[in-house]
Simulated assay, not measured.
Amino acid sequence: MERIRINIGNRTSDVFIGMDWRAVNDMLPSGGLVILTDDNIRSIYGKEFPDAPVISIKPGEESKNLTTLGTLAQGLLDAGIDRSGFVLGIGGGVVCDIAGFLASVYMRGIRFGFVSTSLLSQVDASVGGKNAVNVGKVKNILGCFRQPEFVICDQKMLKTLPRDEYFSGLAEMIKTAVILDENLFSSILKNKEKIKTADPGLLENLIATAVKLKASVVMEDEKEVTGKRMILNFGHTFGHVIEAVTGMKHGYAVACGMAIACDISANMGLGSAEEYTTVKSLLNYFDLLPDHGLDADVFQKMLLTDKKKEGRKINFVLAGPVGKAEVRKMDVDEIINIYRSTKMS
């Protein structure tokens, strides 16, 4: 088991990799606790939940909205939760996003922590303090930055994941490697067969590395003030459009967005064609690049709703050599024109 501490100002957030999730009982207050989960997680683990009121939502991105948030806030009121209360999110990325945002705005902020049950949330969604809900087809447009007190990542829980959910999370791990660490990318490449079988020991090491990398970025630029944290959005500009329009799972959509960003980066001469081909081949190995079926006009329209845009310009993340990335402020039309040219070549 490894503890990774995220220090931001006078606040700390501890991420426990390889800890048995039931140890959460030792981290909770004696009263004022409410558990937020989804129906699938409750059916698998609910009998072992801590003794507290449980509020369960329908699994999936469609629950990540203001209507659900209002219903959950009423549930907290009905449970008698006051400003001394604590929200424990037990679930994947959607549950962690909603639990964190709910706790951040309920009575102007109460304490919260996570038991992260999916690979997506263990390597990305539950770590870093971004909490948000969607409005219509626009992802994460209402949200805040606020760190959980703790995140427990028990790799044994990944064994109950459906295969597509598992690979969806793997896309975010590959993203972290592509933009931040050539050694992590090499490890994934070398161990891809064992990763396919969700080997717990291997995953514990890979997840710990990915979380440390993300934590280093978050501690340097928690709220994307300097622009350093923006590199974590690699693949997300096009990926969020694909996810919103097609309903594709987040990791698959981000993988498609990474492939597009690699093509655009290659067109701009930022790295070697061989490296970009290796990245896309690895994504293909895990079947992470389904046909999204969207044309350039759809992307152009939807990119103008991106929360990273300023006027008609977007802070777009480009891949350099594996392990490096950079953010450039680019006009939406310029991005789309390059995208069109990559489709014709």
Rank of each mutant, 00 (worst) to 15 (best):
M1F: 01
M1V: 12
I4K: 10
I6K: 08
I8K: 14
N10S: 14
G18Y: 05
W21I: 01
V24I: 14
P29S: 13
G31C: 11
G32W: 04
D39Y: 02
N40C: 02
F49H: 04
P53T: 13
K58G: 00
K58H: 02
P59W: 02
S63I: 10
S63V: 08
T68A: 09
T71W: 07
T71R: 14
I81K: 03
S84D: 06
L88G: 01
G92Q: 06
C96P: 00
D97K: 11
D97W: 12
A99T: 07
M107K: 15
G113L: 06
L120G: 06
S121W: 06
D124W: 08
G128Q: 10
K130G: 09
N134E: 09
K139R: 07
P148L: 05
E149K: 13
E149L: 11
F150R: 08
C153I: 08
M157W: 00
K159S: 11
L161H: 08
S168Y: 13
L170P: 03
A171G: 05
M173Y: 06
A177Q: 12
V178C: 12
L180K: 14
L180D: 01
E182D: 12
N183R: 15
K192V: 02
E193W: 11
A198N: 10
P200R: 08
L202A: 08
K214S: 05
M219N: 00
E220S: 12
V225W: 00
G227N: 07
R229A: 01
I242H: 01
G251F: 13
A259R: 13
D263W: 02
I264W: 05
S265N: 05
H292L: 04
D295S: 10
D295Q: 06
D297L: 12
V298Q: 06
Q300F: 01
K301I: 07
L304S: 15
K308L: 13
F316T: 10
V317D: 06
K324A: 07
E326M: 08
D331N: 14
N337L: 07
R340K: 14
T342G: 02
S345I: 12
